[in-house]
Write a protein that binds this DNA or RNA. Structure first.
Lengths: 229, 229
DNA sequence: CCAAAAGTGTTTCACGTACACCCATGC
DNA sequence: GCATGGGTGTACGTGAAACACTTTTGG
């Protein structure tokens, strides 16, 4: 007990909503708490912000510590400061959401922490604290942002088929899209480049693989451009 | 010095970017600091979050204390936690942006705090802390959000002319809009209702006054609707 | 040869956009 | 009567949406 202040201070934490796409389902990573409060319940990964690290750094550190994930898309979501959201004391939490490429690393590798697991976002268990509110807001942000920013790619491996990309959008937006219209629209943006590689080991006609052209997106962004799906 | 913690804690503050529309210009309210650090420089209104109030409440309280404004549109913007953003110690600030109806209360009434003043957003003085970053982000948020949410009305009195509404959009988006197309599009949303009142004391043909239909917006919102201008 | 997903064009309709003139009012 | 902003309609082109069949590959 060595740090003293003139006025009482809230504790500052980060919580991360980590999304991944597994087959057709949008999933979120949860960890089972092994400490009170809410011991044994599922919660978003997160923890305290150190006084000598930025909030972004804290989010990345906690993510790596608790789930082994690094080098992921991570963006600040909202700061939750309701009274009583933590039963112990006043805790203000800066929430982030992350998008990870589940198809690269298998789900296994990403969840070797025994108490971490992926849940379909449409079927999550009861959550600790106000983490349901945080998850809801993250889902809404994702649904909104995916329509005007090219973040869908963050859920896919570097090379992907257009059908995979379409499934990303369908999973996030919870609606079916027309294949021909989707392909035409995506290709017209000029932001996906065709490679000369095709799928392997599939029991049907192999689809062509594409890559997202991040450089071109940066150019277009400057000239006031809007990715739209 | 009565409050002790096991680990050092950041101080938590709120900062408010208050927008108003004065004639044709989008303006932001700044206050001149009378305490170090940055004494004498302009800054966003803000202050410390009390341990027993929510962050939203803190923002409203600071806004009222420092500028006399209450009952305004207020929304959380982003949380700024860079190291060194406050030279004294680690301070994390939750930024908000507010939209006020400048035409109701005259500018005078809103700025009777002697050290508060409105500046055109395109011509603000040098600001304390990282407040330029906060202002930039607030402007970008406003530009984005005004396109899909009916928040432009928050800058106008309850009853307004369609030309006033158009000026709101032109000021925020920094572009000129076609009068006929704008009126058609706005009226087609069904979210502005014609009153039987017209302007008074104008040196030309008096324009009809309209009101925003908040009830109808709530209905439409539920059925998945998007205000678009 | 069958199953499974890849890949491909056209038509239709709604909406965005560009554009110019008369009207009402106060001074 | 003139200056000032209020108010109105149409034509054109682009883009969104709906829609079905052939192709390729592995088993």
């Amino acid at each position: 007990m060595a740090f003293e202040y003139e006025f009482p201070r809230a504790a500052l934490t980060v919580d991360c909503v980590v999304f991944g796409l597994d087959d057709e389902d949008l999933k979120v990573m949860l960890i089972q708490r092994n400490l009170p409060p809410f011991k044994g319940e599922w919660a978003l990964p997160g923890g305290f912000v150190h006084v000598d690290e930025t909030i972004d750094d804290a989010a990345r550190r906690e993510l790596e510590e608790e789930t082994g994930l690094s080098n992921v898309f991570l963006e600040q979501l909202y700061t939750f400061g309701q009274l009583g959201r933590d039963p112990r004391e006043r805790v203000v939490s800066v929430a982030y959401y992350a998008l990870v490429k589940l198809m690269d690393h298998s789900v296994q590798a990403a969840t070797d922490a025994a108490d971490a697991a992926w849940f379909p976002v449409m079927d999550v268990p009861s959550l600790a604290f106000d983490h349901h509110d945080i998850l809801d807001m993250a889902l809404n942000r994702l649904k909104g942002k995916v329509r005007y920013a090219p973040i869908g790619f963050e859920l896919l491996p570097k090379r992907f088929t257009l059908s995979q990309l379409q499934h990303v959008y369908e999973a996030i937006l919870e609606s079916e899209l027309d294949k021909r219209n989707f392909r035409r629209k995506v290709l017209k943006t000029g932001l996906v480049i065709e490679t000369d590689e095709v799928q392997k080991d599939v029991a049907h006609r192999a689809a062509r693989l594409y890559e997202f052209d991040a450089d071109r997106y940066k150019e277009l962004e400057d000239t006031g451009f809007n990715f739209e799906v």
